[in-house]
């Protein structure tokens, strides 16, 4: 009994120590993120200027706002298109690279470089590439094609996708490779002994074993998908072609216009969506 009590005591002490370790960082998070976010939640029910309680009116305004709907749709479409492409592409690359005997490290570095390249450093490059008189159109015309208004038509969306893929391919590839390295070579050996081919090995052994990583990779890709705004903003400014007008553009513009009520409501909605998404993903992963 005494031992148990001691154990209880030490357990409580450990809990306390853990909380103490966590506290400084958590206090900062609370201070700089949580409390202000609570304030934003409160504000989302108030009018911007008079701070009068307006109930759900801000939310109604936001949902009725065509710009918001368009930006939300674009953002969803972007994530819906990009993340699958990125995930499959990076997985393929990771598997191929995994098989290589030499040059593995070099190629890994090369593919990772875009992650290190600051967006501002390559603005000029993007502009030169995707301008209607730019390099890409020059190449197209040499091949006998037509000029495409990369930044001024629906193609702007694909520009967004390309820049996102360029930036995150290496990162996701590393993530996959980490997952691949977690799979014991013995399993493959056993499968090969059983006469399984490469493809069979991949579908039957690799993919199931990588499923836990998929959750993390998807979440991180989702996280990074927000950062594509930098490139979009640097290349196309505050009001790009509507096919690449993302929620971030909208928030930025609202913020500049001091439409705090709308931005507050939209931020709350956004946060809830993210939360819901994570919970869903987590649950689906845990069910596996």
């Amino acid at each position: 009994m005494q031992r148990r009590a001691r154990k209880e005591k030490s357990k409580r002490r450990r809990e306390l120590a853990g909380i103490l370790f966590l506290l400084p960082g958590f206090a900062g998070v609370v201070c700089f993120t949580l409390l202000p976010f609570a304030e934003v939640v409160r504000r989302s029910f108030q009018s911007a200027v008079t701070a009068k309680w307006v109930g759900w009116k801000n939310y109604e305004t936001v949902f009725a706002n065509t710009a918001f709907r368009m930006a939300a749709m674009n953002t969803l479409r972007f994530t819906g298109v990009c993340i699958p492409i990125l995930v499959t592409l990076s997985l393929t690359l990771a598997v191929v690279l995994q098989k290589l005997r030499s040059g593995k490290n070099f190629l890994k570095s090369v593919f990772l470089i875009p992650m290190a390249v600051p967006a501002a450093s390559v603005v000029l490059v993007w502009k030169t590439l995707f301008h209607s008189n730019g390099l890409l159109n020059g190449l197209l015309m040499k091949l006998g094609g037509e000029k495409i208004g990369w930044m001024t038509s629906g193609a702007a969306f694909s520009v967004l996708v390309v820049s996102y893929l360029w930036k995150n391919l290496g990162y996701d590839m590393i993530l996959w490779m980490a997952g691949l390295s977690g799979i014991s070579e013995d399993i493959y050996e056993a499968a090969r002994v059983d006469g399984a081919g490469e493809w069979k090995c991949f579908t039957r052994i690799t993919v199931p074993n990588l499923l836990p990583s998929l959750y993390t990779i998807t979440v991180l890709s989702f996280l990074n998908s927000f950062k594509v705004f930098r490139e979009a903003w640097l290349v196309a400014g505050d009001y790009p072609h509507q096919s690449m007008y993302l929620l971030q553009h909208l928030y930025n513009n609202w913020f500049r216009d001091l439409a705090f009520d709308k931005i507050a409501a939209a931020a709350v909605v956004n946060a809830l969506v993210v939360l819901a998404l994570i919970l869903v993903l987590r649950r689906s992963w845990e069910r596996e």
């Binding site: 809990e15 966590l22 976010f37 927000f226 928030y251 946060a271």
Partner: peptide, 30 residues
């Protein structure tokens, strides 16, 4: 460490980590 609320904090951290800057822009500005 194992302490009450640890899982919730973890979840909170992950959610905050995934928030785009623009969502947190207004609270931080305030």
């Amino acid at each position: 460490f194992r302490f009450p609320g640890r899982k919730a904090v973890l979840l909170l951290y992950i959610v905050l980590m995934l928030m785009p800057f623009q969502v947190l822009m207004l609270p931080q500005y305030l």
